[in-house]
Design a protein around this nucleic acid. Structure first.
Lengths: 207, 207
DNA sequence: GCGAAAGTTTGCACGGACTGAAAGATCGTT
DNA sequence: AACGATCTTTCAGTCCGTGCAAACTTTCGC
């Protein structure tokens, strides 16, 4: 069992795996950013990372997944953070609060994420695969929200809130990348969540 | 130029094209609903529609597209309807109003849409391809919203509103299908839009 | 150290999605 | 009936993605 995947690990085996995984991911991003998704084969990505193309598929189930990365654990932590926010805080605000941790991690990997978002912007089909990376994470999120607001998961609200905040976060990420990281991601997320909390009312001309 | 694609057309050729397109789409839906997406090949779908598999790809660029259908014109009309709503009406309400036409058409094809949504529910990867079927439609929508509320398209609001209402509509469609069409789609969309207008505030326990 | 155990990489073979080109069938028009 | 335009089919080919088994490497027990 590996409870701490990020730091320089004890085993040599794990370190190597992390290396090749990172090499594949960055090679994929770099090549696709240069040439476009269709113009890059997994064989080329694998060659750039010095492994066989079969090995590529041992790490990622598809070409797209190598670009998006593996956010399974981040998603799980995110859901857990939402559950940890004190009760009484409205669910929308709780989600915004829990996002802070994810945002900080993205800012830490700033270059990687800006490149990744540039690729996503060029290939909108990849967009949905961000944030909502897993069906289980989404279901878990829906259940946590249902618990927070005290309704059954069959009620429409938890699902609506989950998908809508996901969409809001995605647009914030896109704007962040479009601005080349000029404005802070946290600011852009705040802006989006403020608009949601305001009922998506038309912004005054003074904005 | 064909300005009126739906009614029984004049030419025999066009009729045949419509027939095979519909045959392919319904065969795809039926087979995938029975066996699942991975267990159905394009060859089988084509055989069920009595055409070669190459012909399938003359009609649809991918297996998924045959399931989702071709909503390009509907999307364009939808965007146009949003632009037609009298100014002064907030953008969120304008979008809800414009949706009525789309919803009515879906209710008219009730069986087809319920089957389609059942398939989508079984294969969440198809979900994003609904509503947001085209990048151009989405951009057009963003521009119309920007025009309505009097901000530049670079402002975050138009994009946010477009993606968020899309997500809301998708959840309403899923609930509609999950309930087997018991509740009217219009009701479920209203519920979602009311929640959006209320700033996604937690629903009281009395809901 | 050393050999067994466990995990990883690789090549091979395969099925299926999708595309281009060229030949064949069908339809509309005169 | 014949011609041109349009659609369908056949064919060959590329690439994605997966199961399998052999070769290899790290780890562990002794």
């Amino acid at each position: 069992m590996n409870f701490d995947p990020s730091p320089a690990a004890a085993g040599l085996r794990d370190r190597k795996k992390r290396q090749t995984r990172a090499a594949l991911a960055t090679a994929a991003l770099r090549l696709v950013a240069e040439r476009g998704l269709e113009q890059v084969t997994v064989e080329e990505i694998s060659a750039a990372a010095d492994v066989s193309s079969r090995t590529f598929f041992n790490y990622f189930p598809s070409k797209e997944d190598a670009l998006i990365g593996d956010h399974a654990m981040q998603s799980a932590r995110f859901v857990a953070r939402v559950a940890e926010v004190p009760p009484g805080v409205p669910a929308l605000a709780a989600i915004r609060t829990a996002m802070t941790e994810v945002i900080d991690e993205m800012q830490a990997d700033r270059e990687l994420w800006l490149l990744r978002m540039a690729v996503v912007a060029q290939h909108p089909a990849l967009l949905p695969r961000l944030v909502t990376v897993g069906a289980e994470a989404e279901r878990a999120m829906i259940e946590v929200v249902a618990g927070r607001v005290g309704v059954s998961p069959e009620h429409g609200f938890p699902t609506l809130l989950t998908t809508v905040t996901g969409a809001a976060f995605r647009t914030a990420m896109l704007r962040w990348a479009a601005a080349g990281g000029t404005r802070s991601l946290a600011d852009l997320v705040d802006e989006a969540f403020d608009a949601l909390a305001a009922g998506l009312a038309d912004p005054g001309p003074k904005t």
